[in-house]
Write a protein that binds this DNA or RNA. Structure first.
Lengths: 317, 317
DNA sequence: CAATCTTGCATAAGGTTGGTATAATCTTCA
DNA sequence: TGAAGATTATACCAACCTTATGCAAGATTG
């Protein structure tokens, strides 16, 4: 995260752009400049103001002060004093950008932003946001508090008819790409996998399983991700040779969930028999499905799924 | 990734082509040239402008600045300053495919190696191979000569019963991840897309469409990838607002291919009506299907698809 | 409690920008 | 030969930017 002095001071932006980026109306920007001598943007030949990236950061800081109740006059004085003593160099970025691990904004703000960006099909901005989210929060928090709620929101918006399937597909392709990139970024040892993860037969949604795979790899488990819609017989046949300690299948639709009923029986023929875990949206929407599947229900959140898998795996290593 | 000075400065493109590839109208291109002394394309004997790849890169950079809020006058000034100091060399290198290095082995060797590695589920080695392949060959060659044959081999092996579906799924997830990563590595401008790419309704295979999307982005087209299995009505509805110049759908299975029969009719209601292109395994296995779909068949290879799309796109402003 | 201060916002009057429209020619190509 | 597309040049106009003035709601003060 850049320190204030490293942020470009090249004049670039018009007042309109700055207004949009900081959320401060342009009239107000001019009033602040006139009344409190805060900032002094360069001028073009035509007297237009030109703001730099640094100016924007400063304005964001000012706004954060004002938003938290400090009158603008006091905030401006504070700023002038800090500029003089040089201490602003450290203070400024802290007020604005996430100092590694601490969030600039609470998760729900990112949920909203990511949702709106994806719905607009703005891939570039979504990528920036994604990066910001994952550098603000831990992997698990980013997924549980931002990605999952955002996916839920997209799902609901689709159900309400507020967005098109094409939009849902776009968002899904975007996140799939990001998650697969993360998955492949964890170096996988060349030995046989401990855990196989995939989607139930007939299941087309794969983001849940994918997030779990990424999380488990980040925890150091040897995970192999097989994608959605895996036929059970085939999976069991594969497991016969690879001998994984655990198999996890996820189901979002009810039909896919019901497909899992025979899994435990198929697995129990294997020696040693892998543990079978399952989860996914279907079991949260209709909890009564849980009891119909023989195997371990991993819980209704990603967090609990990781925890359950960890317990099951360390209980038999 | 090549630096700007290594990008060919040979004049090649007409203003129309440049307009299509950058998303800037030709009138605007001429206005920029006249007003801001930005660019100075060579002229033919007939005074027609001739742009080079480098010109296109410069224009893309300019557009990205404008899109992020910098007025064109300021962006042009910034560019002139950077040209003078030579620092623009670092700024520009984005979105061009590497100039094919020399290959250590002929493609078919890599096909075999990649196939064997994927069948063994050896993700780490596959990633190494993948990298080697794409640094040995150009993007197009790597896909056409290595990836596609490898996918064909996997498909045939599955058909023969020589490999499991789980293995096919694993390979597919691996390549999907790699390709989506590449797709997202090409910065997508914030403007409306020229081309929408996706899979026909009911189609679950997405690698072909994905490769085409990556190739077209690498050629500078503004591509939006929507994933597999897109309902036609929904896609048309989306196109109504986004007004893409072209829509490409791919089909591997015959049923999915037949779904495309009504596409052209749906699209022709739109003003302006986007060009509709189609392709995919189904049309190569059963060539008679081609004539059943109204629209442009993109050819039976990735190469020809890229070429056809390029022709169609530059043939209209 | 009335006077004053603070501060965000509205409005007016005037200048600039920048994408696009129009027209009049010329070149290419089928 | 006509359609499509390139050329220059002029002009338009909506959207912006500029300064200046002023107001209203809320806080502060004498």
């Amino acid at each position: 995260m850049p320190v204030i002095s490293e942020i470009s001071d090249d004049p670039k932006y018009t007042i309109k752009t700055v207004s949009a980026r900081t959320g401060i109306r342009s009239v107000t920007l001019r009033a602040w400049e006139r009344r409190y001598e805060v900032l002094n943007p360069q001028r073009l030949d035509n007297r237009y103001r030109q703001y730099s990236d640094r100016d924007i950061e400063i304005l964001r800081w000012l706004k954060s002060r004002v938003d938290s109740g400090v009158p603008i006059s006091a905030a401006a004085g504070e700023l002038r004093r800090m500029v003089k003593t040089g201490e602003w160099a450290e203070v400024l970025p802290a007020g604005i950008s996430p100092p590694a691990g601490r969030a600039a904004y609470p998760p729900h703000v990112y949920v909203e932003q990511l949702y709106r960006t994806l719905v607009k099909h703005d891939e570039a901005r979504a990528a920036e946001l994604y990066q910001e989210i994952f550098s603000s929060y831990s992997l698990a928090t980013a997924m549980v508090e931002v990605l999952v709620p955002c996916l839920v929101e997209i799902g609901e918006a689709w159900y309400r008819g507020a967005i098109r399937i094409a939009t849902e597909h776009f968002a899904s392709a975007f996140l799939r790409g990001k998650l697969l990139t993360m998955l492949q970024a964890y170096p996988q040892r060349r030995s046989a996998p401990n855990i196989l993860i995939g989607g139930a037969p007939g299941e087309q949604h794969e983001l849940g399983a994918l997030m779990l795979a990424v999380l488990l790899r980040s925890e150091g488990f040897r995970v192999e991700y097989l994608g959605p819609d895996i036929p059970l017989e085939d999976l069991v046949d594969y497991a016969k040779y690879e001998k994984p300690q655990m198999i996890v299948l996820s189901a979002v639709t009810e039909t896919a969930a019901l497909e899992l009923r025979s899994m435990q029986t198929l697995l129990s023929r294997l020696r040693p028999a892998p543990v079978f875990g399952f989860g996914g949206g279907a079991f949260n929407l209709r909890p009564e499905l849980r009891s119909q599947i023989a195997g371990t229900f991993l819980g209704d959140t990603l967090d609990s799924a990781v925890a359950t898998v960890a317990t099951l795996m360390t209980g038999r290593d």
